[in-house]
Amino acid sequence: MKISVCIPVYNFNVRKLVYDLKKEIENHEIDAEIILIDDASSENFRQINSELQDRVDQFILLEKNIGRSRIRNLFLDFTQGDYLLFLDCDGKIISPNFLKNYIDFLDKNSNISVVYGGRKVSDLPPSEKHILRWKFAIERENLPLEKRKAKPYLSFQTNNFLIKKTVFEKFKFNANLHKYGYEDLIFSMDLKSAKIAVMHIDNLVYNDDVEVGNVYLRKVEESVESLLLMLNNKNLSAKLSEIKLMKAYESANKKGLKFPVLILFYFFEKFLKKNLLSVNPNLKYLDLYKLGLMFRKSK
Results as ranks from 00 to 15, higher is better:
R148T: 13
N142A: 10
S110R: 06
L61R: 11
Y102D: 03
R119W: 10
F45T: 02
I60A: 09
S155V: 04
T158G: 13
E51L: 14
V121F: 05
K120Y: 03
K100Q: 14
E63F: 13
Y102E: 03
E139T: 06
K92Q: 12
N65Y: 12
I66G: 00
I93C: 07
K149I: 09
R148A: 09
L76P: 02
K151H: 05
F45C: 05
E51Q: 12
V121D: 04
N44T: 11
D88A: 08
I93M: 05
F78M: 03
N101V: 00
L76G: 04
S113L: 01
L99I: 07
N97A: 10
L74H: 02
N27W: 12
G81P: 09
D77Q: 14
E24T: 09
V115L: 13
L106E: 00
S113R: 07
D54M: 01
S127Q: 13
S42R: 03
F156Q: 00
I71T: 07
L76K: 06
R55M: 00
A150W: 07
E24W: 14
P125L: 15
I30L: 11
F98A: 00
N27K: 13
H130F: 15
K149N: 06
R68C: 05
I60G: 05
I30G: 07
V167P: 06
K100G: 00
D77T: 07
K135M: 07
F86N: 11
I112E: 02
L124D: 12
K135F: 05
F161Y: 11
F59Y: 15
D57S: 13
F136E: 12
E51G: 09
A40N: 15
D82V: 03
A137Y: 14
C89S: 15
K100N: 08
N142E: 02
K108E: 04
I103K: 06
E146I: 15
E146M: 09
L36M: 11
K165S: 09
D38A: 12
L36D: 04
N101W: 03
P144W: 13
L124P: 04
L76R: 08
L52D: 01
N65I: 09
D104S: 12
N65R: 15
D88W: 12
